[in-house]
């Protein structure tokens, strides 16, 4: 891993990497607003697609990035 990835940021009570955070925000926002704008009207369609976009964004980021936490488990070396 390159040296600059070694710095972590404290955001909302947990550590993240700036790059991963930016990419995650972009994915979720694009999918969510994109889903809303492209969905067929009438009413609940766009919102449902927008919300689904946010959830899909969550899943993609969860698969793409590793959490920046170190676990120190008692009873495991």
């Amino acid at each position: 891993m390159p040296a600059k990835d070694r710095a972590f940021l404290n955001v909302w009570d947990d550590t993240v990497s700036g790059r991963d955070l930016l990419i995650s925000l972009a994915i979720a926002t694009l999918l969510s607003l994109g889903g809303f704008l492209l969905a067929p009207w009438p009413a609940p369609g766009p919102l449902v697609l927008g919300i689904s976009g946010a959830i899909v964004g969550f899943l993609i980021s969860a698969l793409l990035f590793r959490p920046k936490r170190r676990l120190d488990i008692e009873g495991e070396a």
């Binding site: 550590t15 993240v16 990497s17 995650s24 994915i27 809303f36 927008g50 964004g57 969550f58 990035f65």
Partner: peptide, 16 residues
């Protein structure tokens, strides 16, 4: 579950 994923989901929901 990376913290980034949670942050991004809530951010996107609010923007939406």
């Amino acid at each position: 579950i990376p913290h980034e994923a949670f942050l991004a989901m809530f951010f996107a929901l609010v923007m939406l």
